[in-house]
Structures are given as C-alpha cells and as structure tokens.
Amino acid sequence: MASVAPSLPLFYNDLMPLNTRDHANWRARGADKASWLAGVHAVPLTVEEFPQAGRHFPIIFASGDNPVPLALMGLNEGVNVFVDADGTVTQGVYLPAYARRYPFMLAKLQPDTDELSLCFDPSCGLIGDFTDGEPLFDGDQPSDATKAALAFCEQFEQAGQRTQAFLDEIRKHDLLMEGEVSIQPNNGGEPFVYRGFQMINQEKLRDMRGDVLRGWAQSGLLPLLYAHIFSLELISQIFGRQMEQGKAPALQPIA
C-alpha cells in the first residue's frame, strides 16, 4: 500500500493504486464539500471547459515554458472567493474537472511504461474501510462507482491531450504574452498590480493570416481563444469579491 509518486500534483498528499488485495471491502463516501479547494486560487482547466468556466472565472495561462490553462478563483495565494474555509462551494459555481476527479486520478505505476492505473489519495477521508458509502469492488471486479471514477479519469486524460494540442498550436504561433492587470480600489489609493501569468496577445491574433484563422474557426480553436479573452473581464469581479469577503489582496502575482 505504498505511494506511487514522489512528485504529487495539486490537491494530492499521497497516491495509492486501487486494488482488490488491499481494498476489497473499502468504500467511497460522497462529498458535500470540497475541502481540497479551500485556499486554492488557481485550478488547472482543459480547453473543453473554457466556454463554461469562462462564465464564472478568468481563464489565464501559467507563466514559464509549460503554460497550463488555469481557472482563477482568487487573485492571491491562499484565497478562493468561491469556496469557504470548510470547503463549502458557492451554489451554482462551475467546478473544474480537475477538482471534481479528486481523490482519484490515473498514474503510472512503472516509469518505463505508458500504462496508467486508477489511484487515489488515501489522506482524503473519502475512501476507506467504512460501513457507509459506495463499495469499490463487487467481488473481484470493480463496482459501478469505481467504473464511473475510472471513466471520468480517462475522459480527463483525453481532454488533457486535446489541451496540450491546443497549447502546442498557440505556442507555435507565439500567441502568448506576459500579462499584467492593474485594478484601482474604489476607496482610492495606489492600484493593485498583478503579474506572473500569461494571456493571448490580441494584437498578434488580429494580425494572424486569414487561412490560419479559418482553420482555427473550423477546428473550434478560435472560439476557445475568445472564451479566454472575454473571461479576463471577470478579474475585477474576483477583486470585488475578495474585498467584500475581507480578503484584501496584497501586491503579488496571481499565478
């Protein structure tokens, strides 16, 4: 029952492969709160989520050589304006698939193979040798709950591959630029300036060749770019929510 990954992604404190030998009688409890999201200000997104997520959050790209798309749920480290400290999520807000798959994920058990296995975070408090919850196995076969978790994780991995193809395309055309946002508080004073993220360079997008834009329109990539661009208008709303909640931002990067 050892962990399988020395370097763990966001939310995960440990990873353990799910198997009948160790977990034959274990169950999974449903979660009415998302405690793992509390205090997390930026959550990875897949491109398929841009249209829906962009109605709720600004969509930005992480800085550096691997510009992962992120849903911005707060402007500062440790601040999530949509999730309370106990994990209560604002009603009606969209939850990124990255957050919804927790505590499960697919991971390599052997570094020299591409095979992925269903794993879970044993520290989550949602999976264990409980008397309540959904069984993880039906005899020596995965239960319906486990099959559903596996299917969701597989869909997420496929969406991740499509997201990488999207990122490869925009990087090929050098469309990303360093972002900067300046917000003037209502009570005056110095503006809050946020950096440390990337965004689409709209000037380069306007100057893109017509045949490239037509191809992007036909493939569905162009609407995704504009979903990102339009979502940036929500940064001021996130700032306003932070002020209303008494979580005044500090002058530091947002990603």
Rank of each mutant, 00 (worst) to 15 (best):
G188A: 03
A149N: 00
A149C: 05
A217K: 14
P185Q: 11
F137D: 12
I183Y: 01
L222A: 10
L213T: 10
P223N: 06
E178M: 04
A165P: 08
L167F: 04
Q158E: 13
I183T: 02
Q158R: 09
N186E: 14
I170Q: 02
P135T: 06
I183Q: 01
G189P: 06
F197V: 03
K172G: 07
D138I: 00
R195I: 02
F166L: 11
T163Q: 02
N187E: 09
D144K: 14
C153L: 07
A145T: 14
T146H: 04
Q164D: 07
A151F: 03
E203P: 00
D144Y: 11
S182R: 14
S219L: 11
L150M: 11
G196R: 00
E190W: 05
D144M: 15
Q161C: 06
Q158S: 15
M177Q: 10
Q141G: 01
S182L: 11
A149I: 04
K147T: 12
R162K: 14
P191L: 04
F152V: 12
R195S: 04
G133W: 02
E203Q: 13
L205E: 00
V193I: 15
S219K: 09
K147R: 13
P191A: 01
P142M: 09
S182P: 07
D140R: 13
K204T: 01
Q218G: 05
K204Q: 03
P191M: 04
Q218K: 13
F166I: 11
Q161I: 07
D144G: 12
Q218H: 07
L221V: 15
E134S: 14
R195D: 01
L136S: 05
R171N: 14
D174Q: 07
E178A: 03
G215K: 02
K172Y: 08
T163M: 11
D174S: 07
Q161T: 14
I200G: 04
L213K: 14
P142K: 10
E134I: 01
V181C: 15
E203D: 15
D174I: 02
D211P: 06
M208H: 03
L176G: 04
